[in-house]
Amino acid sequence: MGAEVLADKVYCYPFQKVVTGYLNKYPTPLEKNVTAVTTVEEQTDPATGIVYRRRIATCNNIIPSFLRKSREWIFKWSILKVTNIYLEEESWLDMKARVMNLKCRCLTWAQYASMNEESVYRESKHNSNWTEFSQKGTITITGAGYLNCILERFAQTFLKQGARKSIAIMEKILEEKYGSPVS
């Protein structure tokens, strides 16, 4: 079945500032669940100037404790008991076109869950001092039988809250670093 989350936001800050803010957003005291972000690969295409990055985010396990307790009847192995969840993010930053595309996927539990996000930051067509953000996230759970749907709904709720919180963190970081938004 699967669940989907959509998010859109216009940041009233120039593209370069928003991208810099995004790339330095985590870890932050504003989000205690993201404990580290490590760049594992970075390359610049000499022909296009596009910067490719692959980063791994380490996050606290946010699965409710009642699901994490020894419930081997839910899953063959007690896979929900992990302390950390790992996410892989790939990004392509094109400063000439003023666009950054991102793809993120969950590495933890990949054999049971597919979590993917695709995001775009781009200079606004309406105002070159603004940056448009759009995101689409999907999650599909398999291997949990009748709990697949319940776990997907939990994940959808968490992803919606996470998207709202991430946008609020970006706004706070941009305002603290650059002052009030540009009109």
Rank of each mutant, 00 (worst) to 15 (best):
M1D: 09
M1Y: 00
L6I: 13
K9T: 05
V10N: 01
C12N: 10
Y13G: 03
Y13V: 07
Y13M: 04
F15H: 11
F15Q: 07
F15G: 09
K17V: 06
V18H: 09
V18K: 04
V19C: 14
T20E: 14
T20W: 02
Y22K: 10
Y22L: 10
L23W: 07
L23N: 13
N24S: 12
Y26M: 14
P29K: 11
N33H: 04
N33W: 01
N33K: 06
T35L: 03
A36F: 00
A36V: 01
T38D: 15
T39A: 05
T39K: 06
V40S: 03
V40N: 03
E41V: 00
Q43M: 03
Q43S: 09
A47Y: 00
T48F: 01
G49M: 02
G49H: 02
V51K: 15
Y52Q: 07
Y52C: 08
R53I: 01
R53C: 02
R54H: 01
R55W: 02
A57I: 00
T58W: 00
C59S: 09
N60F: 01
N61H: 04
I62S: 05
L67F: 15
K69T: 11
K69D: 09
S70A: 12
S70H: 09
S70N: 15
R71Q: 09
W73E: 12
F75L: 15
F75G: 15
W77M: 06
L80Y: 13
V82P: 02
T83Q: 15
T83I: 12
N84K: 14
I85R: 10
I85K: 09
Y86Q: 10
L87V: 11
E88S: 09
E88M: 10
E89G: 10
L93P: 04
M95R: 11
M95L: 10
K96Q: 05
A97H: 13
A97L: 15
A97V: 15
R98D: 05
V99S: 14
V99K: 15
M100C: 13
M100Q: 10
K103T: 14
C104A: 14
L107T: 03
W109G: 11
A110E: 11
A110R: 08
Q111E: 14
Y112V: 07
A113Y: 00
A113N: 07
S114L: 14
M115I: 13
N116M: 11
E117W: 12
E118N: 12
S119R: 05
K125D: 02
H126G: 02
N127T: 01
S128E: 10
N129D: 11
N129H: 12
W130A: 12
T131M: 08
Q135I: 06
G137A: 14
G137C: 08
T138G: 08
I139D: 03
I141H: 03
C149M: 02
I150R: 01
Q161H: 02
A163W: 03
A163N: 04
K165L: 08
I169D: 07
M170F: 01
K172M: 04
I173D: 12
L174I: 01
E175N: 05
E176W: 00
E176H: 01
G179I: 14
S183H: 04
S183M: 06
S183C: 07
